[in-house]
Nucleic acid binder design. Structure first.
Lengths: 240, 240
DNA sequence: TTGTGATTATTTGTATACAAATATTTTTCG
DNA sequence: CGAAAAATATTTGTATACAAATAATCACAA
């Protein structure tokens, strides 16, 4: 687990600097969720409370709160005497989540769409640059990172807070499936598809058409699910 | 807090009988959520960890897990040195949640609708009877209880589990608003409206038309939000 | 009387020791 | 040697003491 210290040099320092318990919780929760999503902790991996508490410079008590919320999110599963294991994403769950996300994304364009102010347009401009950069040099980690960051940008297209909260839970529940399933030989193909999606949505946001952005996103989610299903079949043909 | 012991004579016994930690958590979480929803713990009330742990016959540690999940659900708010307070439902949040629930209920009829088997029809038959019974003798507690139970019955109309999970979180986030806002003089009116909704939806389920059931539900949610908004205005006219 | 500062009490947050459950290893017996 | 059983180790769950933050109280002076 030493690599993670190198990637994130000083979580313990951040935690010490945090003023309130809520801030400390937020840091630990976010860091752990990010590591799970980026496959630093791949599905099936055991997360030791003692080791994590040691790395974060806290006792097991506050760390356990973060793990318990992650368990409620469906990202880990704790069992007495066994351990806390990162969950796997099965195909049925994936399909149901994606079906729901498709519908929710349509709502993003319809329910309380946010105004396309300059900040928002600038943000999507940055996304566009990152997409082009990734396209020029495909990379698994950068792909996953952009996937997460673009999701959060997209979230800003609605002002309906419950919708944002729910969309976020659903997104993190399955987003690591891409890193899990994409074979190296298909990476550049997927990067091209994804960057095209970002460019198209950035165009829609640039002209202030949130509904169009949402429909583009929905279409890509639909096609993405289809491709993921194919990848899964290719990986273990017996699973039907 | 002695009244609650009388209502639920032996939570401690149930907890002792539970085999696993997960079962114990589920019991505590469900009991607390139900008490908040039924206004046994009204908004603003302080929940003492020590008192609750004493009532449940456990230490603060496992109790805190239940409270922490309830905090993630938005039903309570814990603050060091202050206490754990039951949250209030404000009007903006209510409107956003209801908007979202309206759309989700439409999905209930469209996404993986469940088959109308005999068990389901029997369940909605029971709901019909309870609605008629409530109509004959309007009562606040019975109204709130039927509201909760009917919600759970309605959940069975879809097989999409993530949709169920999300709908449940949203429902419990605001359902106590009815008990909070309905003045006694309007109770019988609301009971009639609600029982009409149940009868109509039960009819739709009886003929196996889940889509129709969902649309009826959606329409009633929309009208319900409108009435709640009026009640709120009537209660504190200055709030605009 | 009133306001202000100090003190005390109350409550959640954290650390830690121990219990309970499971997994692993070792032993024992056929 | 193999299998079953016992012992050991590991890990999360629980209880509890203490720390930190806030609220409430009290004393005292203007």
């Amino acid at each position: 687990m030493n690599e993670t210290w190198i990637q994130d040099p000083d979580i313990a320092g951040q935690l010490e600097a945090a003023a309130t318990a809520q801030e400390r919780f937020q840091i630990m929760y976010t860091v752990l969720r990010d590591r799970i999503s980026m496959l630093v902790y791949p599905p099936g991996m055991q997360l030791s409370e003692e080791v994590l508490a040691g790395e974060f410079g806290v006792s097991r008590s506050p760390l356990r709160k973060a793990l318990q919320i992650l368990e409620a999110d469906g990202l880990v599963l704790s069992q007495q005497g066994v351990g806390t294991l990162v969950t796997d994403v099965d195909l049925d769950e994936l399909a149901q989540v994606y079906q729901l996300r498709m519908e929710l994304n349509e709502l993003t364009g319809r329910l309380s769409p946010s105004r396309a102010d300059d900040n928002l347009k600038a943000l999507f401009g940055t996304m566009r640059l990152r997409a082009e950069s990734l396209r020029a040099a495909p990379d698994r980690q950068a792909f996953a990172r952009l996937n997460i960051d673009f999701f959060h940008s997209f979230q800003l297209l609605t002002d309906n807070q419950p919708l944002r909260d729910i969309s976020e839970k659903l997104f993190y529940r399955t987003c690591r499936i891409w890193l899990t399933l994409i074979p190296d030989r298909d990476l550049s193909t997927e990067v091209v598809i994804f960057s095209d999606e970002i460019l198209a949505i950035a165009d829609a946001v640039a002209v202030g058409d949130m509904g169009a952005a949402a429909h583009i996103r929905r279409a890509h989610l639909s096609m993405g699910l289809k491709r993921l299903t194919e990848m899964r079949k290719a990986e273990c043909p017996q699973a039907g």
